[in-house]
Design a protein around this nucleic acid. Structure first.
Ligand SMILES: [Mn+2]
Ligand SMILES: [Mn+2]
Ligand SMILES: [Zn+2]
Ligand SMILES: [Zn+2]
Lengths: 143, 143
DNA sequence: CATCATGATGATAATGATTATCATTATCCA
DNA sequence: TGGATAATGATAATCATTATCATCATGATG
């Protein structure tokens, strides 16, 4: 069973920090990267219960935070809803079109947008680190 | 004491909905529009305590929601921090550069950005209603 | 102006998401 | 293999926001 790319990165991060490798961590990472949509901790927890007997909700939450810290997961938070997580591969970036009717996330990326944002920041003496663009509206299926 | 423009709009909205005009509502609107930064409900509450004896926290929260509904206030929510509110005059729109060190909000607006976003949405068969762009980084003063 | 139906308020409890705690278990280095 | 200690899982705590409800205030009515 050869490690996937993200799994290797996770192991490396864990080793560097003097943390320990556990079955739970392995399964949480695997489940996140297998998920086809933006999942909540709870949804991930429900998926994992059938794979890892006795796994706890707190462990899922904790490790989603850990994955976020090492750049393998990203959090998407809409208002006061529960946070959703998506796997992050490399340095790729995308923004979201979020349908207010069905809740679907459409992922988009436009280099012109990114460039404009950088220019806007620098014009204000601002050093940008990251950004979040969310466009809310109605998707094609719900129109 | 002649009503300010937003006050008149607020009164109109209240009348249309069959709601009632109260001293608390008047003072909450006034305090919000007098505030020079993006305030939390708690900060507004603290300001209002000295103007309206006995005012309750819940009343401030409730009426910030009401103001939001009628387009006179806008909520800015960062992660799990408490929501911040700013007065909204007309249909103007702006985005935020948010300093991760001092928490300052810099307001920006670029028509090219807005246009690009619209194009991006429509290219995906998406009908945009509103959007939120937040750029996180370090401001000039904190550099 | 007095009445009164009902919306608004204020104190407090409830809710919901996330984090902290802690006894127990599992990891992994010497 | 033993042992220091990180991780887990169950649960409590926290924090922002909302709901509840007794009481008060508004404003339409006559
Ligand atoms: Mn995404
Ligand atoms: Mn603003
Ligand atoms: Zn949709
Ligand atoms: Zn700053």
């Amino acid at each position: 069973m050869t490690d996937s790319q993200p799994m290797a990165a996770f192991r490396l991060h864990i080793a560097k920090k003097g943390l320990r490798h556990t079955k739970q961590r392995e399964e949480i990472l695997s489940a996140l990267f297998s998920s086809k949509k933006h999942v909540t901790a709870e949804e991930l927890f429900d998926i994992l219960r059938s794979k890892v007997a006795g796994i706890g909700y707190a462990t899922v939450q904790r490790n989603l935070n850990l994955l976020r810290e090492c750049g393998l997961a990203e959090e998407v938070k809409i208002g006061n809803q529960k946070a959703r997580y998506e796997p992050k591969r490399g340095k790729e970036h995308h923004d979201h079109l979020i349908c207010l009717k069905c809740g679907r996330f459409i992922e988009v990326n436009d280099p012109r947008l990114e460039k404009l944002q950088d220019g806007l920041a620098k014009a204000n003496g601002f050093a940008p680190l990251r950004h979040k663009l969310e466009i809310y509206g109605t998707c094609a299926k719900c129109a």
